[in-house]
Structure formats: C-alpha cells, structure tokens
C-alpha cells in the first residue's frame, strides 16, 4: 500500500509539471503533445487507484482521440499561440475559489475504501451476494454492464458507433473539382 502512495506522489508531481508546461509553452504542437502526456499520466494514476475502466477511457479519449482532434484543428489554424497581455487576476481568483470549494466538499466524503460508506450500503451487498448466482460472471462490474444493464450498454454501443461514423465523415475530406481535374490531367499525361 505504501509503495502505491509513493508512485502516486511521483505521478502527481509529473502531472503538475505537465500542467504548468501546457500553460507556459507557446508552441501549440508541443501543447497538444503535452496534453496527451497529461492524459497518459492521469490514466496511470487511475490504474494505481484501482479505477482501471476509468483509466481506459482517459487513455483512449484523452491521449488518443483528443490529441488527434487537436492536431486536426492545428492543421486549420496556426502553430503559434498569440501572447495575451490581459490581466488574469480575476480568472485566477475564480479558479482558486472553485478549487477550494471542491476541496472543502471532499471533507464530507467517507474515507477511501470505507466499507460503511452510504454508497456501499445501498444495492451493492445484493449485487455482491447474487451476481455470481444470477449471471455466472466473476467480475461484478462486467456483469452489471453486460448483463443487468445489457440493453443500456447496447444503446451506448449504438451511440458510440454513430459518433464514430460522424467523426470519420468529418475527417475524410471530399476531393474538390479542381483536384479531380488535376488527377485526370496527370492520368492523361501518363
């Protein structure tokens, strides 16, 4: 247990460094790369904290898709960030205020892994005792997602499939008439 805390600490320090670098580096390509690194570090922290499925989402969406989408945006815009000279005191205060409110909110949370926390008392005991009897799956999370909420998951898959097709349609540029003409000319020459 104590080893995991040290690993977490090192990863969080890397995370802070990456976050500061995203703010201070002006080259937008580097910022896209750094945000990918940020997601990967965040995914490692989730894995160390035992939230493997959240880590999956973070790695595939954060490091995979959103880096690619950011690069797609960079292809349209430029590669350098304009330096803004506006005062950033008010935004900083708002961020610090929101952050301290969130930290204040964590004081009311039950301890990490506390078996008597309300969330573990509601329906969880029933799932834990009956899941294997009902479905025959050793992993309860998988059983809930794929069996108890099977139709829900099917709908989600449909949504993701539609979104994937939409992204593919957006990313694949159709050839303009000019390009088609150029290609035809090239073919005639050959």
């Amino acid at each position: 247990m104590s080893i995991e805390i040290y690993i977490d600490l090192v990863l969080v320090i890397f995370l802070v460094i990456t976050g500061l670098a995203v703010i201070y580096v002006r080259n937008l390509f580097a910022v896209a790369m750094l945000s990918g690194i940020y997601s990967l570090l965040m995914a490692s922290i989730f894995v160390v904290l035992d939230a493997v499925d959240v880590a999956f989402t973070e790695a595939s969406v954060g490091a995979g898709i959103s880096t690619v989408l950011m690069l797609g945006v960079l292809a349209i815009t430029g590669n350098r960030e304009k330096v803004s000279h506006k005062s950033s005191v008010l935004p900083l205060l708002i961020v610090i205020g929101t952050g301290s409110l969130l930290v204040y909110g964590t004081w009311d949370l039950p301890m990490f892994g506390d078996p008597n926390a309300p969330v573990h008392m509601h329906v969880a005991p029933e799932y834990i005792s009956n899941t294997y009897k009902h479905t025959g799956m050793p992993n309860i999370v998988t059983a809930v997602l794929a069996s108890y909420r099977g139709y829900d998951t099917l709908g989600e898959v449909g949504v993701i499939f539609t979104a994937g097709i939409g992204v593919l349609l957006l990313l694949s540029k159709r050839k303009t008439k000019k390009e088609v003409n150029q290609q035809n000319k090239l073919k005639e020459k050959l």
Partner: peptide
Amino acid sequence: INFIGVIAMLKYTRYGQFA
C-alpha cells in the same frame, strides 16, 4: 491505443491533414 495515436500524429506532421 498508443500505436494508433502515434501513427495519426506522424501522418499529420508529414501531410498536414488526415485525409
């Protein structure tokens, strides 16, 4: 995931677009 992401990035840096 890492493999696909890097391929996409290299494609972008070489061609400036994905399509």
